[in-house]
Structure formats: C-alpha cells, structure tokens
Design a protein around this nucleic acid. Structure first.
Lengths: 148, 148
DNA sequence: TTGTATGCAAAAGGTTTGCAATGAT
DNA sequence: ATCATTGCAAACCTTTTGCATACAA
C-alpha cells in the first residue's frame, strides 16, 4: 500500500537552492514540514519561537517569503493581501497573475462538472479552479511587478 | 449567439435578501456590477467616493462584507486575511472551511489532469482546485466560527 | 572575509470596532 | 417609531522596511 505523502525534507531543498541554512530557517522549515494544516506566518512563529530563543517574528515572515519565492514551499491562495470582490456568484473559475495579482474570470462548462469529493467530512458548497500564471501585460514588461 | 455573462442586478438581489437598499449600498453594488476586474474594497471606495459625497471607507468595507455574507456578491479566494503556507509544492488541491478558514489538502489524480486554458494571453504555470465548504468541527458546533 | 540573514523598532497596508447620529421602512 | 445603517476615529492584525549587528560559507 502507498502511504500518504511523506514529510518533505525542506532543509535539503533549501540547500539545493543555494540558500544558507541558518538555525532559524531550519526551525521554521522543520515546523512547516511536520504540519498538515496550512499555518499562517504567525502560527509558525508561535510554534517555533519557544524552541529558538530570541527568534524574531520578522525573521519568520522573511524566511517564509524567501522560501516561497524560491519554490521550497508553497502558499495557499496566493492572492495579494487585500480581499477581492466579485459580482458573479455562480460557479466560475479564475486566472490569477502571480506578478500583479490581477484576477480574470474564466468560464468552462467542463470545469463546472468536476466530481466533488465525498467522505472527507466536509460539506462542500461549491468549488472553483484557480489557474496561476503571468498575465499578458506582465509578460511584456517582463520584470513588471506593478500591483493591480 | 450567446453573449457573455450579463451585468447582474445586484441591487435587486439585495432587496430580495431583505437588506435595506441605501444610497451607499446602491452605489457600491452598482460599481461592482459594472466591473470585470475583481476590485479590492479600497478600489471600490476610490471609484464610488466621488459619486457619493461623504461616503466613508468603513461603509464600503461593511457593505461588501454584508453583501458577501448574504450571498449577493462573491469573494475571490475566500481565505482569511492571513497568508497560509504549505510544505507541499507539487500540484494538489484544497478543501477550505468557510467558517474557520481551515485548509486541508486533497489529492486526486483526476484533478491533476485538467486541461489548462489556452488563448487567454496568460502563461499558466499551475492550477489548483479549491473546494469551499464547512469542516467537520464547524458542522458540529453549528454556529462555530472560531478562526483557525 | 564577504555577502547574506537576523533583530529591533517603526511604518505601512488592510480591516474591524465602539459609539453617536442618521436614515429606511 | 424602530431598528438597521452610516461616519468618524481609533484600534487591530498582518506584513514590510531601514538600519546596524551577527553569522554561514
């Protein structure tokens, strides 16, 4: 039988990316690797802080940001900080620009008919597919990072 | 031919939900209905403010929140304010609790093979499916709204 | 040694709240 | 008349930044 996803060795990945492995980074990555939930930066800080005397909240934010940008870890959602509103309430999907955070609707009947998971304990109301990439404008000005 | 989604009459929906239709609400909903992007609360405020003298930023936040909770409008992403991190970097999907914002991984090979949209101008890197619902814990304590 | 990473403190968003006044039904 | 909604100011939470110090390679 195939066990569920093994705990990833994030510290190793960190090294592979050529990033220095400090005590703080090791602790933050070690904490994240062992968690099934998807903690916020503050939750990571609260968990790691007791184990690393003097650890700064700022450092946790910076480590998580650095690791996410290097692809060592992932982020859930990946919109900017601000909440975005949508006049459409029906099922539809989104193209999201990872550069400028632009969000564009995408409709596709095929995607509207996915099988909703059962036996998870969750009562699923709806779903949507998020396609993450780079929008036309940001592709042009390659280094474009104006926020939208 | 079928034209793309028509501009929704959000004010009508507001009435249907039994919510008072004030000048401010009407202006906010009117603005949102006409936009294809997915504006932040602040962007809505900037757009509506000139048309409604004395309009408060607070009110815009409150109107959007109220309407979203009533189902008159939608929100993109629907996580809480805080960013969440994930040790997993490969393609996988999420069950998200709309009550407590808990996020649980969900893996399904079928969902890993969706057709990525083309001809959108976007350069798509990856995607994930977000299933939104209520988690087992929040279902029990029906009114449960502790944040996770 | 040399550049990167950390800590502190302070600032910068983004959003929420208490309370009195205003307004919709 | 009555309760919901608004505006203001202030608080709150999350995240980012400047700068001097400490540390990994």
């Amino acid at each position: 039988m195939k066990t569920s996803t093994a705990v990833p060795d994030l510290s190793a990945r960190c090294r592979e990316k050529g990033l220095a492995l400090t005590a703080q980074r090791s602790a933050v990555l070690g904490e994240l690797a062992g968690r099934l939930d998807h903690p916020t930066a503050d939750q990571v800080y609260e968990a790691v802080s007791p184990k690393v005397p003097g650890l700064s909240r700022t450092t946790v934010y910076r480590v998580l940001d650095t690791m996410a940008k290097a692809g060592v870890i992932g982020v859930v959602g990946s919109l900017g900080a601000a909440m975005r509103f949508d006049p459409t309430t029906g099922r539809h999907h989104h193209l999201m620009c990872v550069e400028c955070h632009k969000v564009v609707d995408f409709e596709d009947p095929k995607l509207d008919a996915l099988k909703v998971p059962t036996g998870t304990g969750f009562e699923i109301g709806d779903y949507s597919v998020q396609f993450k990439g780079t929008c036309p404008e940001c592709r042009k000005k390659s280094g474009g990072n104006r926020r939208n």
